[in-house]
Design a protein around this nucleic acid. Structure first.
Lengths: 341, 341
DNA sequence: GGGTAGCACTCGTGGGTTCAGAGTGCCAAT
DNA sequence: ATTGGCACTCTGAACCCACGAGTGCTACCC
């Protein structure tokens, strides 16, 4: 065995032990718990090299080593196969998700399930409107001057807006608008709607044109991703469990980050650029002040007309990466299957 | 001054100091910070009496006193007037809430605002469907066999369900059903709908009757309060700020309770039975294991056709009750005004 | 009777010291 | 390249001790 390879094995062993024991790991403990076939002294040399390379640090002179962000990163990148979940776990996932009654329910169940499986904070992003397609637009007059616009997507998501018409609504105009809207828009991805609808108001005159413009604008504003994309979070209590040990001061900054939709959405968006089945961001890699002591593991789900979104788990740097990755990937797969069915 | 009165003043002073300093308060400190007009020795006698009565305890011999749940309760009950918020605060509330675009946005803004104002965890319950009235029901065929049922309430809330028809939809039947449904149901409180709709399927024959029954059932299932009432939470990071000092072990149990909709809904429901403008539950009074070290302050909002619900703040036993009560009441009032307008 | 002053007593906190053990780095030997 | 040996470092636990805050009690005063 090449000595570089052994070094990486030592790193792997350090990460595993540190994750398991939460204590800095020394050379002797390492030789006892893993059959590396060499003596502690050799390990010490390797550790010195790993420290020079930036993968591990000593909290203080006479203590064992602890992985750095870079160390965890190396560890994660070197994971070859993801260990599968147990049959019982997979069956539980499947049963739980199949009983869901609508999209909200699916998402709610998925996020709780994932929190439970990973014993961490779970996050699930709603299927993105931008990438899903329109199934139907409905216009409902409400009183003489208000019009309710209901937008239904192929993912089963329903968005509604109320708008105030400038003049009294004309039932015939509303009816025609409904028909034209649906003809022009159904089947389009929401992101393409703008071009599809641009000329629609020209079909009307006077108050009808104004109304059509207002409705089109309302439909388009639904594209405004910042407002419409949502992430739901569950399992924050899991953070508190190991709070003192895993976070230098408090979990406050992490909770703050989790409450800020924009932070999560940015992070999920950036992670979508990794095309791996499971993406990981460790500590500072999250590029967010509040998450320097946290890692996030996510996976895409949906796709094929069901919209694409991500789900994942957020936990301390010192998390069980292989286990978390397996759970995240599994839930993403089942969710994809459920949404497609 | 009656000596019983003085005792209660001493209790008030103890609560105030303990809330301010987070440290057990002794007789000397008390005489220095409050002009009670008597010597420490006298205070000591009063404190002994208060301890006998169960309002305060000593963490250990040779320490000052700390209020018990009962002590806080007595303190809260004796608060006569609620101090008003500053003009700047009231203006900020008003401006923020007025800009909201729809019900979701109002609720979201309110909960964040309240978390910010109280520096605690804020909870806002969605206006209850049971007490709000129906504005419109819309039926939208989706494909040949699916029907989308959209229910709009007077609070601006929109609920939708998709149902699968047993047979191909007949446009004429759907149209007639829509008309009849609206005639029978509009203006009714959701809680009264069941009786109003019972005979409706009799107007149809064959497949139409089956469809009507399915639709009615779907509308009624919206009444299912457990599924439809929702509470949104914000500001959990505020809990972490003082976590070590205010909670014996971790904030985990509190976070768990906050994630369980059923727990919050039960609590809010029970608090609705107090008819005071602001209701308070302290420690064990919450009747929930996870909240024994927490208190909750809530106030109703809405009403007059806008549905009735509650909002409030959850924090440590050692919270600024007068300030929290003032903020909760103020936000409830502004929210009521916004929803009515 | 209620308030006060004085006093002895309790007990937790904080500072300082010591000690053992874990872990390291380095060097000489294989 | 690996290993055994060894001197060195540093943390954390244990311990002790003195300080001081705070109490309860009793005797005294108005």
């Amino acid at each position: 065995m090449n000595s570089d390879d052994r070094r990486l094995d030592v790193l792997r062993a350090i990460v595993e032990d540190y994750v398991a024991t939460r204590e800095p790991v020394g050379s002797r403990a390492l030789t006892e718990r893993h059959h590396l076939g060499v003596s502690p002294a050799t390990i010490r040399n390797d550790m010195a090299a790993l420290e020079d390379a930036g993968y591990i640090v000593q909290p203080h002179t006479s203590a064992g080593r602890v992985p750095t962000d870079m160390g965890y990163r190396q560890f994660v990148d070197r994971l070859s196969e993801v260990k599968p979940l147990s049959l019982a776990e997979r069956r539980a996932i499947s049963l739980l998700l199949e009983d869901a009654v609508d999209l909200d329910d699916v998402v709610d169940r998925a996020v709780r399930l994932l929190a439970q499986l990973t014993q961490q904070v779970a996050v699930v992003q709603y299927p993105s409107l931008r990438r899903s397609a329109l199934r139907h637009v409905e216009l409902v007059p409400v009183g003489a001057r208000h019009l309710l616009v209901v937008i239904i997507t192929t993912t089963g998501r329903v968005e509604q807006r109320t708008l105030e018409a400038g003049a009294e609504l004309d039932a015939e105009v509303v009816g025609r608008l409904r028909v034209l809207l649906n003809v022009a828009a159904v089947g389009r991805r929401l992101a393409d709607l703008e071009t599809a609808l641009r000329s629609l108001p020209d079909e009307f005159t006077g108050a009808g044109a104004a109304l059509a413009r207002a409705v089109v604008e309302e439909v388009e504003s639904t594209l405004d991703l910042d407002r419409e994309e949502r992430v739901v979070v569950a399992g924050t209590a899991n953070l508190a469990r190991t709070a003192g040990a895993d976070f230098t001061r408090t979990i406050g900054p992490v909770l703050e980050a989790l409450e800020e939709q924009v932070v999560l959405l940015r992070l999920l968006g950036e992670m979508a650029e990794d095309h791996a089945a499971v993406a990981v961001r460790i500590g500072r890699e999250t590029q967010h002040e509040g998450l320097v002591e946290a890692s996030i593991v996510t996976s895409p789900y949906g796709g094929e007309g069901a919209g694409v979104a991500r789900l994942g788990a957020v936990g301390p740097l010192r998390m069980d990466y292989p286990g978390t990755m397996a759970a995240v990937r599994a839930v993403a797969r089942y969710l994809t299957r459920i949404l497609a069915g």
